[in-house]
């Protein structure tokens, strides 16, 4: 079974040691940004091709899904 050195308090295993920054989990009341009913803040950023994308201009007919992730690299 998994080496407990790499298991966090949630029982999650990763080969990254527990004392590394990327394995720190926030408390239960961590900030999760805009509330339900609020307007999404502006998002204007380059995409993977370097093309500037404005989310407000590219939403679908019913809306948008905006995923914030830690990294596509690790």
């Amino acid at each position: 079974m998994a080496d407990p050195t790499y298991l966090d308090e949630f029982g999650f295993y990763s080969p990254m040691p527990l004392d590394r920054g990327a394995r720190r989990e926030p408390g239960a009341d961590f900030p999760s940004g805009p509330s339900l009913g609020a307007a999404l803040p502006p998002v204007r950023l380059p995409d993977q091709r370097g093309v500037m994308v404005d989310v407000a201009e590219r939403r679908g007919e019913r809306g948008a899904i905006l995923v914030f992730h830690r990294s596509a690299y690790w």
Binding site: E25, S32, P34, A39, E61, G63, F68, R70
Partner: peptide, 30 residues
Amino acid sequence: MRWYGIPYPGSYVTDAAGVVIDKDFHQHHA
């Protein structure tokens, strides 16, 4: 790895006007 600057991971759903109608954030990053 560019750790500094990462977000708490999660997602939002907006309606066609850009209003947040759903969000999904969890205390564990995975």
